[in-house]
Amino acid sequence: MEHAKISRDEKQIQTRLHLINAGFHLISEQGYSAVSIRNISKYAGYTQGAFYSNFSHKEEFLLTLMKSQFEQENAQLQKIMTQIDSDFSSLLEKLELWLTDFFQNDEWLKISIELQLYAAREESFATEYKQVWQTHHEQISKILIQLFSHYKQVDAEQLEAKILEIISLSYGLALQYMIFKDDLNKYIQIIIQRLIGQI
């Protein structure tokens, strides 16, 4: 009896993952307004009923996409920070590799723009969007505080400004690279050199 319950739970997790992956692909390719729940469900190989058994509405689905991406980013960066006591150049090398993947993740960057635009137009969605973004900001802040504090004493006010600058710079340059596709290393080195300068 217990085995059947676990299987059902696993199946639901699998369904959610398939729907999320379908949403990532379709929204990045066609834009938020062009993608319907029917399209997402069909692309994932499920009925609309399967969608609604996992998500109450399209906005909840969007927030889940966002949370999923942010959780992945946070986990990856936290893993890199476990190497903080190792050689500094090795740590920077790992950060450069992570930034390379981040800059080349066109699918997420396009969705990020779509979510920001939708939040700018829909006040109710904006409230929930801000909460998810704030949680992500707090997690990234913890990681960057860990990095800055390891190498240098910085007061809280300076830290907040440094963190905001690094996060804004990373997203801004990633979006610029997504459009121009010119010299990836140039963009990454801007962030790395800024980090070194902050430390």
Rank of each mutant, 00 (worst) to 15 (best):
A34P: 00
L19S: 06
S53K: 14
H150N: 07
L173E: 07
I196W: 09
T47I: 00
E160D: 13
L91E: 05
F125G: 05
Q30Y: 15
D87S: 12
I80M: 07
L169Q: 11
H150E: 04
S170Q: 13
I6G: 01
Q12T: 11
L169I: 10
L92R: 06
F51S: 04
Y43E: 12
I163C: 04
A126E: 13
H18T: 08
L65Q: 03
A44M: 02
I191T: 08
D106N: 14
L115M: 12
K110G: 05
Y46T: 03
A119D: 06
L62W: 03
M81C: 09
L147F: 14
H18Q: 15
E59R: 07
I37C: 05
N74K: 11
E122A: 08
L144S: 01
R8P: 00
D155L: 02
I179T: 13
F148C: 03
Y187H: 14
A126T: 02
I167M: 06
K94R: 13
I13Y: 08
R8C: 05
L95V: 10
H25L: 12
E138K: 12
I167D: 04
Y46G: 02
K67T: 10
S112K: 08
Q198W: 09
D182F: 08
L117G: 06
Q69G: 00
Q14S: 13
Y43F: 15
K186C: 09
L99R: 03
I37V: 15
Q78M: 09
Q139E: 12
S141F: 03
L147T: 00
D9K: 14
I40N: 02
H18W: 04
K11T: 09
H136R: 11
A44F: 00
N185C: 03
Y52W: 01
D87F: 05
Y32R: 13
R121N: 10
Y187V: 08
A75I: 05
A44D: 05
H3W: 10
I196H: 08
M178G: 07
K186Q: 14
E138H: 11
F24I: 07
F61Q: 03
T127P: 00
A50V: 06
A156D: 11
Q193T: 11
L195I: 14
V154F: 01
K42F: 12
S33R: 14
H3R: 14
R194F: 05
W98S: 02
S28H: 04
E122P: 00
N54L: 02
N39C: 01
N74S: 12
Q139D: 04
R121W: 03
L17E: 13
H137W: 09
R16K: 15
E138Y: 07
E138N: 14
